[in-house]
Each structure stands twice: as C-alpha cells, then as structure tokens.
Design a protein around this nucleic acid. Structure first.
Length: 260
DNA sequence: TTCCATGTTCCGCA
DNA sequence: TTGCGGAACATGGA
C-alpha cells in the first residue's frame, strides 16, 4: 500500500519500534529484493543500530551510522515488527533481528521493492533525480507554479512523475484531482492560476489527511474517490457518474460531471 | 483461466 | 527536450 502517506507511516513505525537497538543479524530470504550485494548489506548493518529515519517521497531512509538503510516499497512492500518467529509475515524477504528478540520484517509479495544501503540520502535523491516532496516545508505554491510552468501533457502524468514531484501515486493523484475538480487528462498548460493553486492545496490536504486517519487506524472517508473506484458509481460530491480511463499507463477514475 | 493490481524503468516514436 | 504508449518485472487475489 505504499504511496507517500503509507511510507510516512512506515517511517513512524520504524521510529517507534526499531531505533536505538543493536541489529544482531540480518537475514535475506530472497536476494531478488536487494539493490546491493547481500554481503554489502550484511556488513553495513549487522551489529549497528538505527538512530533516525527520514522519508523523501516514497523512499524510507534509516541512519545506520556510516551508511543508511534504504527501502522502497514497490507495489506491495510492508513492514512488520514482531517477537519470536510466530509473527513472521508470509512474504518476508529480509528480516532484521534485534538484540531484545524483536524482529523487523520487510514483506513484499510482488518483489518490486528494494532493500539496500546508501551512503547519503541527499546524494541518493539527487542521483535518482527525485523531485521535491510535497509535504516538505520548502514545497510552497510558488515552487509548484515553477514546476508546472512550461510543461505540457496531462496533469495526472505530471503528478505521477517522481522526478517532478516525489511521492504521489496512482490513488492519491486521482484523489487530489478529484478534490480540485480537475480532469486527470487536462493539459497542464491550460490550467489557470486558480486551478494550479487548487491542485497544490488539494494534494497537500489529501496527503496530510490520509496520514492522520491512517495513523489512527481509520479508513478513507466515504467522500473520498478511493471509496468509489468503480465505473458507474455515484460521485459523493456532486452525484455525477464515476468514469474509468487510462492515463500515464495507470487505471484512472474521475467524476465525469465535476472534474473539468 | 483471465484480468487486474497503491511502482519503476526502458525502449521506440512523435 | 518533452511526452507518451507499451512492455517488462513477479505474484496472488477476485
């Protein structure tokens, strides 16, 4: 379930459970999930402790001293903190054992994620050409206007491009445009100043709200488009008809009445 | 059995 | 240079 809000929750999860404890062993159950050689990962993390976590877009980084643990969750990545072996998730690919007997498992059914180490998150962000994080304090409306200016193409494509904005995924891109009343295929260079502003605010609001209710264990409210991702469903905002299409190669839902 | 999936990357073409 | 469509990756669930 990993878009920006979910990765933010994983960061908090790691911070709550796994910091300031020695990692006694790292077990790699499936090497295909690794972005570095197994020996490199084990040497970098065994005997170390994680001291802090940070996030950029959908990427999690945990400080392990001379290097950082980096996790990208792909389509189905997940983290589990448990004691003993009974709680080991079905698709555990890497397990970190801590000195008090607790374990942190990276679980990933589809293997699209990555577990690796990297010397420096800022260098990683630069090298991988990640755009700004929409919840970063530096991400303000003037910056978003600069990002939008001079671009063409469908607005949803822009929101999904990690080199332009890091962290928006398929669900939240749809959700933000739904709330901003903008059609996902709308050409970026036809957006008015007011519409750009609306997208900026709806994007940030959606992400913050999702983090808030998910951190309380809640589900998406009924007024969210994600609760109506079915062709022909009724739009809870205006009563219009929910339509399905494909944008940027991704299944896209929108309200045919109020999104222009 | 077939289709679909909250992601990313690479290739070819305009 | 920018943008887009399509395919590939791996696997389970409806």
């Amino acid at each position: 379930m990993p878009e920006l809000p979910e990765v933010e929750l994983y960061c908090r999860y790691v911070a709550r459970h796994a910091l300031q404890q020695r990692i006694t062993s790292v077990r790699v159950l499936d090497e295909r999930i690794l972005g570095v050689r197994k020996a490199v990962l084990l040497r970098a993390l065994t005997g170390r402790q994680l001291t802090r976590v940070r996030r950029h877009g959908k990427h999690l980084f945990a400080d392990a001293g001379s290097t950082w643990l980096h996790i990208h969750f792909g389509m189905s990545g997940d983290l589990y903190w448990y004691q003993g072996d009974a709680g080991q998730p079905r698709f555990a690919r890497v397990i970190f054992d801590f000195e008090d007997g607790a374990r942190l498992a990276y679980d990933d059914m589809r293997l699209f994620g990555v577990v690796e180490v990297t010397p420096d998150p800022d260098a990683f962000i630069t090298e991988h050409r990640l755009g700004p994080d929409p919840l970063d304090s530096a991400f303000r409306l003037p910056l978003f206007r600069r990002i939008v200016t001079g671009r063409r193409g469908a607005v949803k494509s822009l929101l999904l491009s990690q080199d332009i904005i890091a962290g928006m995924g398929n669900l939240y891109a749809d959700e933000a445009l739904y709330r901003a009343s903008i059609h996902p295929r709308r050409a970026v260079d036809t957006l008015s100043a007011a519409e750009v502003k609306a997208i900026f605010h709806s994007m940030r609001a959606i992400l913050k709200e999702a983090i808030a209710f998910k951190s309380r264990g809640g589900d998406y409210p009924g007024r969210y488009l994600v609760q109506h991702r079915e062709e022909g469903d009724r739009c809870p905002l205006c009563g219009g008809t929910i339509q399905r299409t494909v944008v940027f190669g991704r299944t896209t839902y929108f309200c045919g009445r109020h999104q222009k």
